[in-house]
Structure formats: structure tokens, C-alpha cells
Design a binder for these strands. Structure first.
Lengths: 365, 365
DNA sequence: TAGACCATTGACCGCGCGGTCATGTAACTG
DNA sequence: CAGTTACATGACCGCGCGGTCAATGGTCTA
């Protein structure tokens, strides 16, 4: 039979048989060369590679998947929002996956409802993936899908999601604790907290860290506020807090919300950081250039993605052995000018430091 | 032969033959049902669907791709940055692809160099895609890859990239023109422009719109400044502009850069918008809550992604017919408080409007 | 009643590759 | 020298599905 010819007279894509013929070897040997298998002489290897290049040969992924049973791709269930945090995490995952030999398939869930996640996971399984990353798991409900590949939950507790689940995270509790400690060390009696939606593990972990930091010093734990990550929700929370003169320090669970909160405080006549200190969470660099420059905690997205992926690949390739142990992620506090010591009754307290402090930061393990 | 059984005694994934056996029909009939082909009786169709559900059957994408030659997936070459604009565009693409019957494969290029893009495209072709979206094409150089699927360039001119290329865009030139017009209508004699990296089409289109707006009114065209999308680069440009007392209005090619620029102006004693008006570009909602709230132009990411995808799918499925005609995208000016009439020698000019203006906006076609 | 026609179903092939196993050939060993 | 090992290659099968075409059975027309 004759091979099909594409539109415009362009020949159909070459197959490994074409390469084999040109190189004067068998198809199987071509397969060996392209998969870096041993037991191929240097001469043959060279000839095959030359022939492949000459023909512009590309492996057919579908065929190799079908034959081998391995898809060499990893699916990501991402949150369909363009926020700095989630977008950074997705980019970090992509960077981590590069060079691992796996391709990435992305499905967004707009809302994060269990059914939504289930649909996303289902579509990934149908496409064929060797493993799945749920980038921001939500707490509510079990995901109603039978999954027979390992799943990495970034930030969820190990119990979540069935037996073949692995987890990794940015160490949100430690980061949140560092943020709270920063404010306490400045002299604040206590620290208020504006959390993200508590359905998110990301939000819960940070609440946990905040509570731990307060408890460690025996401080009063103010009631929790809950936002939705948006600046608008931060603004609303800020209006509430502005009415309470006791508030001198707020740890906000996201930079955007922190910006909204500061805006509300300022509007109400509470100066930041003179009257109220605010620390954010994420590390979006643009907020070094707002007034006041935002003190925040940078999330180690890259490190978390790398570590998570390492574990996931381990679970894929050597499912019966113990995974790599967890390594400590960096805690990076970016101190700018939205935090300061609390106002004292006698003195006016220090003003915001001048513009030099755009990116002063300190790191600790 | 016996079928392979997975770890832990879990049975291997069911195949269409299993469904066929359970439903008491042939494998081919199962295929017909699952592909919604005609000539299947209602009774048989129902039985097949029930059997598939009972077994938890999922189509094997690799096998169907191999057999049919169609992958039913679209590849995206995205920029590996977490900026609001690029991230929003990616999310918009994902939203547009949902329900189209195509899956998404994402590859990031960290830098956008032609070789980098070539590698990304290559890896997509190897994975198997029916079409490719280059989300933010860069101007420099031809992409050195032979591509035999349609390619959608979001924002590049039609000549780019070979014969099977289609394009769509957010209408950046019109948006830029609207931004510039806004400032001119406020009474400014001319408008300065801080562009993005001119290697990007996205930046060039906006420069074009800015030039057109100025030329249409016969205004002086100040020298162009070039940033790199970051707030830091906006800050540097702002230091330059602050030294020039002639500057009363700046159109900045991205919200982040605008924030940096405003910071530099403020630091140098030039008040925004009292002395200098600044308009951004993107529409990141968080900047409604900085001081001053940023006037900006919202990019119609969703509409652009939808339209581009419609054309791409058309090019995939009916390559020989003319594509759908382009429809006008919305121009959405978000007027907040970083723009105002220019200072006059006699009066002090209006102050920034109060906090009510968080999201006042006007739209026009 | 015979012929034409349609709706419905299945037998069979092969997409392009990796896996298994048999077959070679050269380099050692005792 | 025979026996053993290490290396190098190819013949052949089948992964799970869609496509082609033939076969079946029923309904309609002349």
C-alpha cells in the first residue's frame, strides 16, 4: 500500500521504518538508539541519528504510549485564576518538570469544588498521565474518582486523597509563623489575621502557623477574618479592623488582600505602618513599589515544586520503595516598610523607612 | 493469554472489548456509541453506556490517537512568567478550550528566544497536537522548525510563521490608542510612553496605537522609553521622566511598570495625578486599591482567546475553507484616580477623586 | 413477490511503536 | 580447542482503538 500524503503535496511524517531503511538497520535498532538503550554500536548509533535528522523524524508519542503503557506525562489540576500565587506555582511546576522527561498536561478547575476536581482528574486520566499534581487542594469532600496513578497534593496533609498520594508544600505554616513572629518581635502585643478561604489548605496552614506563633508567646488570639484572596475582600476586612483601635498588627494571607486592607486602613485614617503594621504573603515583587512598600513572606514555589515532583516521579517509577525524605524549604521574609514597632502612647513612633528599603530582606532556615 | 493485573490486586483498566463483552455486542459497536456515531439502535446504545459505567471504562487516548491520526489536543507555548497579563491569557485560553473537545498541552519558554520557542514547538509536536497556540510571540527571528499543523499566533501579524498560521489578538493597538486618547482628552498636550520590550509584538502594537493617537491630533511625539514589564524597570523609567518638567502624562504598557513608575515620580516630588497622569495597561484588579488607584486599560483576554481558538479549530478541521471573520473586541477603559487634567499655571488643578472611584469604568466598542 | 433500499451490526486490518526472545558474532576462559 | 560470556542485531507480536467494507435483517416500492 502507498503512504498517505498530506495536503499540498507535503509528504506524511516519517516513521521509524523510514529511518531504519535510510540507516540500513532494523526498526528495532532505531528504537534502541532513540531510547538510549544499550547494546548499539557507536557506528550504528551515529548512522541512525543522522538518518533521523535528515528525515526530520519525530517520535510518535501516541504509538510509544500505546506500546509501552507509559505516557511520560504528568497532569496538573490547576486553579483557574490568574492570581500571582497560583500562577507562580504553575510556572514553578512547569520549570520543575522540564528536563525530567515528562510532559505536562494542564486542566483548570474554575472553582475547586470536589466534582469539578473530579472532572478535571477524569479528563487527565482519559488523556493518559502517569501521575497527577493537584496544585492547590481544597479541603471539602473526597474527590469522587477512582485514580490508579500517584497523585501529588501540594500542601495537603498526607492522609488526603487515598493510598497512592504523596504530598509536598511550601511550608506555609512555618512561613506564617515567621510572619507573625516578625510582628511580635517588633513589639506588637498580638497580631490579627486575615485568612484566605478556609476551604483551602493553603489558607488553613497559614492560620495554623499564626496560631502557633501566638501560642508560643502566650499571646491573646484575636478572632479570625476570612477573605477570598482578592484585594476587594481585603478592603472589606480592613474596614472592619479599622474600627477597632486595639488592632496594631495584621498578618494577611495574601499580598493582594494586604493591599486592599491597607487601602481601607489608610482611608479610615489609620496610617500604615505608623498606627497599624501589615504583612502580606506571597512575595509579588510589584508591591515593593506601592506606598508603603509591602512587607511580605516569599513563598518558595520553585523549591516546593521541585521537591514535590521528585516525590511524584519516585512514586511513579519505583512505587514499592520509600520516597525521598523531605528537605527543609527556605523561609524568606521580605521586610519592607509596611511593618514597624507599635505606636506608643508617649512617642509618635518611627516613620516608615525611606525608599531605600525596596528589597531589603533576610532569610533564615 | 491472561490480562496483566495491577499492583495490589487491582485489575487492569478495562478495554473496549470488556465493555463489548458485558454489553453483548462487538467492540466496534462500543466504539460507535462512544464516538456518537449514527446507526446504533437506542437499546444497544443504552446497554453499552451502562456497561461502560459499570466497568468504569475510560477511552484510551493514545490508542484512539494512533488509530485515527487525530490527537484532539492543542499545544500552548506560554511565556514562563507569572505576570498578570501572561497568566491571565493562559487561563483564558484554558477556559476557551474547555468544551471544545480538545485537551491542552502546555510548554513554557522561559525567555522567548527563537531557539527556545523552536524547542517548545518541537516538544509539542512530539507529544502530538492538532494545533499550536503561541501565546505571546516575539518578533526576533523565524522559528526554525518545520510545523505541519496550524499555528495560532496571539497578537502577531498574519505574515509571521508560515502558511498555516492564523492570528488573533486583544486589539492592543486600539486599546493603546484609547489609553492615549483618554489622556489627551483630559487636556494633556502630549503623552509619553513607557513600552514593554520591543521584541514583543504585544509591546510593539501598543507603541503603534500610541503613535496613531498622537498623530491623529498632530501632537508632538516624545522619545520612547523601553522597560521589561517589571515594576523595577518602571521605577527606573520613572526616575528619568521625573527629571523632565515637560512630562504631564504617561501611558505605561503594563500595570506593574506603571506602579514602579508612579513610585519613582512620587519619590521625586511629582504628585500623581496632580502633576503627572499615569495610565497602565492590563487591568489587574488589585491596583484599584493602591494609592492612587490606577487608571488602566483592561485587556479582553477571554474574548481574544475565544476568537483565536475558534479560528484555530477551523484551520484544523476545515483547512481548505476560509476562516471566520474577525469580530471587534471590546475596549474597556478603567478610569480610576491616577489620571487627571494637566496642572495649570493659574489653578492647582483637581485633586484625585476620593475612594468611591474604585471601579468606575466606561466601555466603548 | 421480487427487487431495491436502508438501518444496524460485526469481521478484519493496521496505526507506529516497544517488548520479548532468538540469533548471531567477537572476546574471553580453562 | 570447546565452553562460556558479553555484546549486537533483527524477527515477530500486540498495545487499544478507529476505519473500511461486507453481512444481516427489515421495510418499502413497483
Amino acid at each position: 500500500m502507498t503512504r498517505v500524503v498530506g495536503r499540498g503535496g507535503s509528504p506524511a511524517a516519517p516513521r521509524s521504518a523510514d529511518v531504519a531503511q535510510l540507516a540500513g538497520v532494523s526498526r528495532k535498532t532505531v528504537s534502541r538508539v532513540l531510547n538510549n538503550e544499550p547494546y548499539v554500536s557507536d557506528d550504528v548509533r551515529r548512522r541512525v541519528i543522522e538518518a533521523a535528522e535528515e528525515l526530520g523524524y519525530r517520535l510518535n508519542n501516541a504509538a510509544r504510549t500505546l506500546a509501552s503503557g507509559r505516557t511520560c506525562s504528568i497532569g496538573v489540576v490547576a486553579l483557574g485564576t490568574a492570581g500571582y500565587g497560583t500562577a507562580s506555582l504553575l510556572v514553578a511546576i512547569e520549570k520543575a518538570v522540564r528536563g525530567s522527561g515528562y510532559a505536562l498536561r494542564v486542566v483548570n478547575t474554575l472553582d475547586g469544588e470536589p466534582d469539578d476536581i473530579a472532572a478535571a482528574v477524569d479528563s487527565l486520566l482519559e488523556q493518559g498521565v502517569d501521575g497527577i499534581i493537584v496544585s492547590e487542594p481544597i479541603v471539602e469532600g473526597e474527590v469522587p474518582v477512582r485514580v490508579d496513578v500517584p497523585v501529588l497534593f501540594l500542601g495537603a496533609p498526607p492522609a488526603f486523597g487515598g493510598s497512592r498520594a504523596v504530598t509536598a508544600g511550601v511550608g506555609a505554616d512555618l512561613l506564617a509563623r515567621a510572619a507573625t513572629d516578625h510582628l511580635l518581635e517588633l513589639g506588637h502585643q498580638t497580631v490579627h489575621h486575615l485568612a484566605g478561604p478556609l476551604r483551602w489548605y493553603a489558607a488553613r496552614d497559614r492560620v495554623e502557623g499564626w496560631r502557633t506563633a501566638l501560642a508560643a508567646r502566650g499571646r491573646h488570639q484575636p478572632p479570625l477574618l476570612e477573605g477570598d484572596w482578592s484585594a476587594a475582600s481585603g478592603y472589606l476586612a480592613g474596614r472592619e479592623l479599622a474600627a477597632d483601635p486595639e488592632v496594631t498588627a495584621v498578618f494577611v494571607s495574601g499580598d493582594d488582600m494586604a493591599i486592599g486592607l491597607i487601602h481601607a486602613l489608610t482611608e479610615a485614617g489609620r496610617r500604615v505602618p505608623h498606627d497599624v503594621s501589615v504583612i502580606g504573603f506571597d512575595g509579588n515583587p510589584v508591591f515593593a513599589y506601592v506606598t508603603p512598600p509591602l512587607t511580605t513572606v516569599r513563598q518558595p514555589f520553585d523549591a516546593a515544586a521541585r521537591e514535590g515532583l521528585k516525590r511524584l516521579i519516585h512514586a511513579i517509577e519505583e512505587p514499592d520503595t520509600e520516597g525521598p525524605s523531605s528537605s527543609d524549604l527556605p523561609v524568606e521574609l521580605v521586610v519592607r516598610a509596611s511593618t514597624a514597632p507599635p505606636p506608643t502612647s508617649s512617642s509618635a513612633g518611627p516613620r516608615a523607612s525611606s525608599s531605600r528599603s525596596h528589597s531589603s530582606q533576610r532569610s533564615s532556615a
